[in-house]
């Protein structure tokens, strides 16, 4: 299992395009991936409905956890993706 943290910095949060891009990225990995907010609320980043219904807004701190054959890669790339978000 591999874990790291990131903060959503873009103004609109995980909406539309960022949400779709995140799902597309996560689906490339075989590992089980989970993203949790500081409040403990979790969502499945491979499911667009789960990502959208989490309603992640600007300034949210999240913890990304992956478990599986490509867990390191998955977490590193997702953190990089979130850090690069800007609109």
């Amino acid at each position: 299992m591999f874990t790291d943290n990131a903060t959503i910095k873009n103004q609109t949060g995980l909406h539309a395009r960022p949400a779709a891009q995140l799902v597309a990225l996560c689906k490339k990995f075989a590992s089980n991936i989970e993203i949790a907010e500081a409040s403990g609320k979790k969502f499945d980043p491979k499911s667009i409905i789960s990502v959208l219904s989490a309603g992640i807004t600007q300034g949210t701190d999240v913890t990304i956890t992956a478990e599986g054959s490509d867990e390191n890669d998955a977490v590193v790339q997702i953190v990089a993706f979130i850090n690069d978000l800007s609109e």
Binding site: T12, H15, A16, I49, L52, S53, G55, T57
Partner: peptide, 21 residues
């Protein structure tokens, strides 16, 4: 069930996405 989760949000953008689902 999913719509229930969106109801608590007041972001007009997310409301539109709920409608998409």
């Amino acid at each position: 069930g999913v719509m229930g989760m969106f109801e608590a949000m007041d972001d007009p953008y997310l409301k539109e996405r709920a409608a998409d689902i």
